[in-house]
């Protein structure tokens, strides 16, 4: 899939112009146009970010300490992106309370995901303290 900046700009401008026109004619259809433009552009962003994420995962894999944390960190980034997208969609539709609940759920899920890392860190710290005789 060949993507260039000109196409992205064209897509964004068509979406913005359509949303502006429909706002004047019939307000109900402004939101779907905005959503379509946002979803299209974000899909391209995610597709473009694919190689970067894979490279970051490879770099994480080189380090034996960070290797096991890499999966957790990447999944946490994914959860953050998904909850942010979902909450933005909810805010666009005029329901900020659902957006806030979704963000809270995402934060709790990330905390749950990182619990093994936290326990590993605490074990390491307690091991160091016991070695030093404290």
């Amino acid at each position: 899939m060949e993507i260039n900046t000109l196409k992205l700009c064209g897509f964004a401008i068509v979406g913005a112009a359509g949303a502006m026109l429909l706002r004047e004619v019939r307000r109900e259809f402004e939101l779907p146009v905005r959503l379509t433009a946002t979803v299209g552009l974000l899909t391209v962003c995610v597709l473009m970010a694919g190689p970067i994420v894979k490279y970051a995962a490879e770099l994480f894999g080189l380090s034996p300490i960070a290797g096991e944390a890499a999966t957790i960190v990447l999944r946490a980034v994914g959860i953050a992106m998904l909850t942010r997208l979902g909450s933005d969609f909810c805010r666009d539709m005029g329901v900020p309370s659902v957006a806030a609940a979704l963000e809270t759920a995402g934060k709790i899920e990330m905390l749950l995901l990182s619990l093994p890392l936290l326990s590993t860190a605490l074990d390491t710290i307690s091991g160091l303290l016991s070695q030093s005789g404290l």
Binding site: I3, F11, L22, F29, V33, T36
Partner: peptide, 16 residues
């Protein structure tokens, strides 16, 4: 990313 999708949505909006 498909421009035809956004044009479809705008078209439906205008028809409605």
């Amino acid at each position: 990313m498909d421009v035809t999708l956004i044009l479809k949505v705008i078209g439906i909006g205008f028809i409605v």
